[in-house]
């Protein structure tokens, strides 16, 4: 009787350990910020910032001026220009953006559009002061509809939320968009 009880105890322990191993989140998911879906036009709030997706434009080419040179960038896909309004909560900070396409692939800010006027990568957001910024992505056109703009804090994203901002209505694709200072 005592022997049967011991065996049952060991089996129960093994089952408990197995269940814990199966359900423990792995490293890849532990170090992700908490996803927070935000409806189109609404303001999303994370622990360290709040933001709103104010506009979306699509273009075959973009033009801007950098270091005194006029540059035009073309793509086999499409340039997606996301306009956002954001402010920090508590402490000044920068924001990082990724476009999560319809297929789930993640498109980083296009480095071919670095240093555009009001570019997100060069913007600081202050507590209590709303600020506008532009994020430019380069991606295949079929990744636009059904995608979302994912905004995170640049430095402490892990213990904060990632705002998944649904885009406003999709606009017509323009041949070229010029960024004026």
């Amino acid at each position: 009787m005592i022997r049967a009880g011991s065996i049952a105890l060991v089996l129960a322990g093994a089952a408990l350990l197995g269940a814990m191993m199966q359900t423990a989140p792995d490293y890849n998911s532990v170090v992700q910020p908490f996803p927070n879906a935000v409806a189109a036009g609404a303001t999303g709030e994370a622990r360290s910032f709040r933001a709103r997706f104010t506009g979306l434009r699509l273009a075959d080419r973009i033009a801007f001026r950098r270091y005194g040179r006029d540059l035009v960038r073309a793509s086999d896909g499409v340039f997606l220009i996301a306009e956002i309004e954001a402010e920090a909560i508590g402490i000044s900070q920068r924001l990082d953006a990724v476009w999560q396409g319809a297929s789930g692939r993640r498109y980083a800010l296009s480095r071919r559009a670095e240093d555009i006027p009001r570019g997100l990568e060069s913007r600081w957001f202050q507590p209590g002061l709303g600020n506008h910024a532009v994020a430019v992505f380069e991606l295949p056109e079929d990744e636009v509809a059904g995608g979302a703009l994912v905004l995170t804090g640049s430095f402490t994203a892990v213990f904060d939320s990632a705002l998944h901002l649904a885009p406003p209505a999709l606009p017509e694709r323009q041949p070229i968009i010029r960024f004026e200072p």
């Binding site: 793509s75 086999d76 896909g77 980083a108 071919r112 991606l139 295949p140």
Partner: peptide
Amino acid sequence: RDGELLVQLHPRLAE
């Protein structure tokens, strides 16, 4: 495409 150094490559966009 533009003669600049290659700094980034996006999924599904062959260059």
